[in-house]
């Protein structure tokens, strides 16, 4: 596996407003995620987790600091060194709490659209989408609309879409918050699996302390400061047997 970090955030600072209304949402936050590494980001509401996630997701650039993704220098402070929309499409995958999927597209089309937006032909995109859904155990639901899928199935489809363009980094914002504990654990397992099998760095913002064993590294954010807490000693994929809803990964 390539030793280049999936993502490297260096001393990211985000300041909103100015003068008396100035608010520092994130202070010199640094993080490096290896390919295949699963990182948890904990912290109370308002601690700056979302600010960090949107910064490294190239949605809300930091005021200062650098971001490197897949070995490419992408952001120098607020200044983009390349087209961020195009780069995000190819190198960053997102999964979040709810309403992850486009409601008027079925499961397959939700994955297929991510590929087509990246200039994959519709035929090839359809084939790849079905492969991904098969990998994640929801191929039999591929022609169903999001409203016809369970919460866990929706998250699997969202993960499939996030992985569609083989991104360097997958960002998940409280992906299990709307799920019951069993399904939530299965989804966490899924992140660990895809990180390992796809060589993708995964950052998960979560409040779910029950699933912390899944993660390789845990960070905590408080008042805009990012602190590396610990490294999990046992990965969930090793500690917990596959649940019935977790499909085996080919290859």
């Amino acid at each position: 596996m390539d030793n280049t970090p999936a993502i490297e955030a260096i001393e990211l600072t985000k300041v909103y407003g100015s003068g008396n209304t100035e608010v520092v949402a994130m202070r010199r936050a640094s993080m490096s995620v290896r390919r295949g590494e699963v990182v948890a980001l904990l912290g109370p509401s308002g601690s700056g987790k979302s600010t960090f996630l949107t910064a490294v997701g190239l949605i809300n650039p930091p005021t200062s600091g650098q971001i490197h993704i897949g070995g490419q220098f992408v952001l120098d402070g607020p200044h983009a060194r390349m087209n961020l929309t195009s780069f995000r499409r190819k190198h960053v995958g997102f999964v979040f709490q709810k309403s992850n999927l486009i409601p008027f597209l079925n499961a397959r089309e939700n994955v297929q659209i991510a590929l087509e937006l990246n200039d994959t032909s519709p035929r090839a995109a359809k084939k790849r989408a079905l492969e991904l859904l098969d990998n994640l155990g929801v191929k039999d639901r591929s022609e169903h609309l999001p409203t016809e899928l369970s919460g866990g199935q929706q998250q699997r489809v969202a993960v499939a879409r996030a992985l569609a363009n083989q991104p360097s980094i997958l960002l998940a914002d409280e992906p299990t918050a709307a799920l019951d504990s069993v399904t939530g654990r299965q989804v966490m397992e899924l992140f660990a699996r895809v990180a390992r099998e796809h060589g993708t760095g995964v950052i998960v913002v979560t409040h779910d302390h029950r699933a912390l064993s899944v993660f390789d590294t845990i960070y905590e954010m408080e008042d805009g400061l990012l602190i590396r807490q610990s490294a999990s000693t046992t990965r969930v994929s090793e500690a917990i047997p596959h649940s019935s809803e977790t499909a085996p990964c080919p290859g």
């Binding site: 195009s86 995000r88 499409r89 486009i102 659209i113 937006l117």
Partner: peptide
């Protein structure tokens, strides 16, 4: 709006 934001998030031009 949400779908449009989602499309932009996944890189729609």
């Amino acid at each position: 709006i949400h779908s449009i934001a989602l499309l932009q998030l996944i890189g729609a031009r």
